[in-house]
Amino acid sequence: MHRLMLGAVALLTGAMLAAPGSAYEGVDVADGGSISGDVKYQGDPPAPAKIVVTKDNEVCGKEKTSPDLIVGADKGIANVVVRISNIQKGKKLAPATTPPTFDQKGCEYAPHVLAFPAGSTVQILNSDGILHNVHTTSTANPSFNQAQPKFKKTIEAKIDKPEMPIKVQCDAHGWMHAWWISEDHPYYAVTDAKGAFKIADVPPGDYELELWHETLGKQTQKVSVKAKEDAKISVQMTKK
């Protein structure tokens, strides 16, 4: 009996060591609902900032629109990360069937916000054919700064731990920056050009939805998900 108890303690300790803090458990979700909606700009959105390009003009062009804040025609905000911040149990975090791709095209990152499951290997492409460097500022994962000269069409970066956000920038082209989001559960989305998002297969329950935008900051929102129903949500964000 004594030994058994010790064994149980040892097992528990082992389990805790293996996954510190991340209590997310993958299960089968049969009667999942979904969360969908949009993120809109409250008030009048500022005019998009312009960047005057003075380097590698033949590839990068002469002028760029800053990707810091992109607001669509009906005030939908693109590139907002929407995630459930307090989910403990849900569908398994399936490894991406195709690895996440991150391109450098016309001296801009595409996509500007890239979200993927932790443990993914990001395929970094250089469609420009000029020297770029991919410089990340990370805390949970090791930061790296990798050059991608013309002859290197693809480089790979494996991001093991969940972290948000990881800033990515190019030191050769000061205006180029992007964000990576590495998640330990599958309930996240990035808004499209209209500000719309959808998160599917959510087990019924009450959740906290976290919205993050690089210039508008963080915001949370309560949401209730019922079995096989879609919880509609509309959030407004604005400059503080």
Binding site: K55, P149, A172, G174
Partner: peptide
């Protein structure tokens, strides 16, 4: 050279300055 590491994309070379700010 530019087709390879393109060092002078950022580095100053003598009195030759790179493009950009």
């Amino acid at each position: 050279s530019p087709d390879y590491f393109n060092c002078f994309s950022c580095h100053v070379q003598g009195d030759k300055n790179p493009e950009g700010p």
